[in-house]
């Protein structure tokens, strides 16, 4: 389990500071971790990653450290700034509604780990 203090100690160790800290912003004084062990478990579940306890701990440290660095962005006033989701000023890229060739079913299934009756096979999906 990841404890609050443990994370704080880990991150606050002067020796472990790197140029990264100076770069993306000084480590906030008295900064505390954002993600709890439950958060990490939830994010892992959302990401479909079955993490080991050890991984969860390492990741918690890394992610919290990054999140602290992201805090730097909050200093900037972006109230009136449009977000950039595309760097290119392009709109309305379409294709014509013309049917083309589909793949032969053998190609479709070529890399499938499990196949039967020209279908991909998965463990039974419970009606949820």
């Amino acid at each position: 389990m990841i404890e609050h203090a443990q994370c704080y100690n880990w991150a606050a160790s002067e020796n472990q500071r790197t140029a990264f800290d100076t770069l993306v912003g000084a480590y906030p004084q008295g900064g505390c971790m954002k993600l709890t062990a439950q958060d990490i478990a939830d994010v892992a579940r959302l990401s479909r990653l079955e993490l080991t306890e050890e991984e969860k701990e390492t990741l918690a440290g890394h992610i919290n450290r990054l999140l602290e660095h992201f805090e730097k962005l909050q200093q900037l006033d972006t109230e009136a700034v449009e977000p950039t989701s595309h760097v290119i000023p392009v709109f309305n890229v379409f294709r014509k509604d013309e049917p083309g060739e589909s793949l032969p079913v053998n190609d479709v299934l070529a890399n499938a780990p499990d196949v039967a009756d020209d279908c991909f096979v998965v463990p039974r999906v419970v009606e949820t």
């Binding site: 962005l73 909050q74 700034v81 977000p83 950039t84």
Partner: peptide, 15 residues
């Protein structure tokens, strides 16, 4: 909003 949207906005500043 705090992370992704903010980052996209700062990306605009950078551009």
């Amino acid at each position: 909003d705090a992370y992704y949207l903010k980052a996209q906005k700062v990306r605009t500043l950078l551009r």
